[in-house]
């Protein structure tokens, strides 16, 4: 089996994912409230409401409390002159290998939350796939983007 290796992503990612989690749970809270209101008009037994709220609470705990630190801990990346390695996943671990000369272009992306905490994501495109390394510190992301662009070009030239 493949080992755990590579650099971790920024620890601030946990905070960003928690914030996103809060938004998601608020939105789903609205949906759950809607369903509860709808059901209450049909004289549904009370325990249905309890079940609904229970599901919502579990979801909130998962998305805000539990998953963000686990996800942050499991994300690893490693960028070398010849290849990019990414490892992620909580329940199922995925190792991804992209040879450098397959990279077509690289993006740095930044949402409002990421920006607030001085983070950015690097997105790597090959001819067939898209890979993301989320929540790196801004200078790190810039550096990676530049490095990959440079190495991808060099690797490409060697290939021809």
């Amino acid at each position: 089996m493949l080992r755990n290796s590579g650099k971790p992503i920024s620890e601030k990612a946990i905070t960003v994912w928690r914030l996103t989690g809060v938004l998601v749970t608020l939105a789903s809270g609205g949906v759950v409230g809607g369903i509860a209101w709808f059901l209450s008009r049909f004289h549904v037994p009370k325990w249905w409401l309890v079940v609904l709220v229970g599901i919502w609470v579990v979801e909130a705990i998962l998305w805000v409390g539990w998953l963000p630190p686990l996800r942050q801990k499991r994300w690893r990346y490693d960028i070398r002159e010849e290849e990019i390695e990414i490892q992620h996943g909580v329940w199922s671990t995925t190792w991804t290998l992209v040879p450098m000369n397959r990279v077509q272009h690289v993006d740095v992306r930044q949402g409002p939350f990421l920006k607030r905490y001085g983070l950015a994501s690097v997105v790597i495109f090959t001819a067939a796939t898209v890979h993301e390394i989320p929540a790196l510190s801004e200078p790190e992301a810039e550096k990676l983007c530049r490095l990959i662009a440079e190495w991808a070009k060099v690797a490409d030239r060697n290939d021809d």
Partner: peptide
């Protein structure tokens, strides 16, 4: 040389 990427994944 045509492969763009390889992924290995394992659930718990």
């Amino acid at each position: 040389r045509r492969l763009q990427s390889i992924e290995v994944s394992a659930t718990w």
